[in-house]
């Protein structure tokens, strides 16, 4: 546990809180996507924390990775 600096999970909480303010004026489908993105960020918080990378950058990076994974899966499923 950090002495002075917040832990990655605490930072993730703060980022999540900020993101959630957007939810109030988002359409439902987009808000669901945002939830998904936040969840991805939380899921990958150990990697973000270990690298020392900023939480927001980490969330974006892992969102891209997750999207690429889904894409890869879809491609594999749709291969003739």
């Amino acid at each position: 546990m950090g002495r002075t600096v917040l832990t990655a999970r605490q930072i993730m909480d703060m980022v999540e809180k900020r993101y959630r303010t957007m939810e109030k004026i988002m359409c439902r489908e987009d808000a669901e996507m945002l939830e998904d993105i936040i969840r991805n960020g939380r899921k990958h918080s150990p990697e973000i924390s270990y690298s020392g990378e900023e939480a927001e950058t980490g969330i974006l990076l892992f969102s891209i990775i997750e999207v690429m994974n889904r894409l890869k899966k879809l491609e594999a499923e749709n291969k003739p």
Binding site: V5, T7, R42, K43, S49, G52
Partner: peptide
């Protein structure tokens, strides 16, 4: 340096 060093143990997130 402080941000880099002031961290605890590594804890993974299980599915």
């Amino acid at each position: 340096d402080l941000l880099d060093r002031d961290r605890g143990g590594l804890v993974l997130q299980p599915d």
